[in-house]
Every structure is written in structure tokens, then in C-alpha cells.
Amino acid sequence: MSLLSYFRPKKTTAANQAKERLQIIVAQRRRADDTSETLSAMEKDILEVIRKYYINIDSSAISVQLEQNEDDLSVLELNVTLPEDDK
């Protein structure tokens, strides 16, 4: 730190701006990954429930998706394809 810099007004450096922007991006990515982990755990549970009470289906027959359509509206979509033959 040089003497003169004590008298210069503090300004945000380019590096500081980069850091702030990256921290937001990284936090968003980590949150999204956590959500997708929760969804796949839920998918597994739903699969087990269907197998237990209804019919034995393949793990590929089920899909769970969460869509954020607008800021205040999320749609949770659950799709289960049942096999054509009975049990």
C-alpha cells in the first residue's frame, strides 16, 4: 500500500466487480443442483410407492420436473407411463 493511496478515494476495482458477479452465479448454480438432487430423491420414493401399491414399473417410466415459469409460479410435473400389459 503506497502513501498516496491513503488519500485517494476508495473505488470498486474491476476485480471486485468480477468477484461479486461470480459469487451470485455460483450460489445460483449450487442452489439449482440441490433442487435437482431433491427431485431425483422424490422420484425414487414415488417409484417405490407405485411399485408397492399398484404395479411394478421400470425406473425409466417415471419423470419429475420442476419448472419455474414466472417469478411467483412453479409447476411440478409428474409423469408416469404405465405398461400396456396388465401386471
Binding site: T13, A14, A15, N16, A18, K19, L22, Q23, V26
Partner: peptide, 17 residues
């Protein structure tokens, strides 16, 4: 460039990642 505030520092990158 880090010293001049033009480049992310080692500490910055470690903290972010």
C-alpha cells in the same frame, strides 16, 4: 494486475469456488 485491482486474486478465486 492483481495488485492494481484488475485481476481476481488467489484468495478471491478460492473463496468463490
Amino acid at each position: 494486475r492483481v495488485e492494481r485491482g484488475d485481476m481476481l486474486s488467489v484468495e478471491d478465486v478460492c473463496e468463490i469456488l
